[in-house]
Amino acid sequence: MALLHRAELRPSKLELLVPWLPGRSWFAGEAGAEVTRVAAYRFDDPAGEVGVETLLVRAGDGPVLQVPLTYRGAPLAGADEHLVGVIEHSVLGRRWAYDACGDPVYPPLLAAAVLADAGQAEEYFEVDGKREMRPASMTLTGSRTGRPVPTGPVSAGPVDGGGTVVRVGEVELAVVRQPVPADVPAAGGLTGTWSGQDEPVLLAYAR
């Protein structure tokens, strides 16, 4: 479960991506153009400390890009190269936003979604002491491979064929940065649909 806050963000998440995205080798679209949100999904950090959100966005009239992010209350040691930027959150204070592929919290959560269809986190707003569910903006479908979800050392590898490779133990996963409809590999995959995109697109897969 993800508990969200009705808060003011400076800069907003999308504003943060405007200067960051064009520097990525997988970027497509108009550099400096307005970044718009297409859909999004979240995973639950078991420790409840790190926000884990994947944004599907467009830069100008470009294709859909997949941007997994993590939000932390303090800098992540040794992860400067993965820092997207710093956000001032009116409720939580300063938050450090990272490319999730370089954050050790993210790969095990992605592995659970790809290999065991763990799904996305339910999102709630807390309003006047009551929790209101936020409708999901997209649907996720993972594989039920029967393989155990790996634990152990995690790492991020170089971009490979338009994706970013992350590893959890002995399992290697590819995050598709420009998701399009594609067959799910036999080793397992994660697909998504949203309003206006009825044909599932491949978001990530096991290699």
Rank of each mutant, 00 (worst) to 15 (best):
A100W: 02
D103L: 07
A156E: 00
Q66V: 07
D128A: 12
R58V: 10
A28H: 10
E34T: 14
R144K: 09
E49A: 15
G102F: 01
D198S: 13
G32T: 13
L110W: 04
D80T: 15
A40C: 07
G162Y: 07
G152D: 13
T145L: 06
P11S: 02
G51V: 03
A187N: 08
W26C: 05
A182P: 15
E30H: 08
R177L: 12
T36E: 13
G146K: 09
E172F: 02
L203N: 05
T36R: 15
R72I: 08
V180W: 02
P200S: 04
T145H: 04
V91I: 14
V171I: 13
Y41G: 04
H5P: 00
I87P: 13
G189Y: 02
L56R: 11
D44H: 09
A206I: 03
Y124A: 00
T54F: 03
R42S: 14
G142F: 06
P158Y: 00
R37M: 09
G119I: 11
K130S: 14
M133N: 09
E88H: 05
V86W: 04
A204Y: 03
R177E: 13
Q178H: 11
R207Q: 10
R94C: 06
E199H: 03
P104F: 00
E88T: 12
E126R: 00
D80Y: 04
P179C: 03
A31T: 15
W96M: 11
R94W: 03
W96K: 14
G32E: 10
L109D: 09
L92F: 06
V105A: 10
R42I: 01
V166A: 01
E81C: 04
G129M: 05
V171A: 13
V175C: 07
V184R: 10
L76H: 02
V114Y: 07
L76M: 12
L203D: 01
R58D: 15
D99L: 10
V159K: 01
A47W: 01
Y106L: 08
D44W: 01
G32R: 11
S137A: 14
W96Q: 11
Y124W: 15
W96R: 14
F27G: 09
V18P: 06
V201W: 05
A113H: 04
Q120S: 13
G163T: 00
V105W: 02
V127T: 15
K130Q: 15
G93S: 11
D103K: 07
G29E: 10
A182L: 08
S143K: 06
P22W: 04
F43A: 14
W20C: 05
L16K: 12
V154G: 05
R95T: 14
G60P: 15
A156W: 00
A59Y: 11
D198T: 12
V165F: 00
S25C: 03
L56M: 08
S195R: 11
G32V: 13
F125P: 01
S155R: 15
F43S: 12
P63H: 03
L202N: 04
D44P: 09
G32L: 06
P181W: 02
V201Q: 08
Y205D: 05
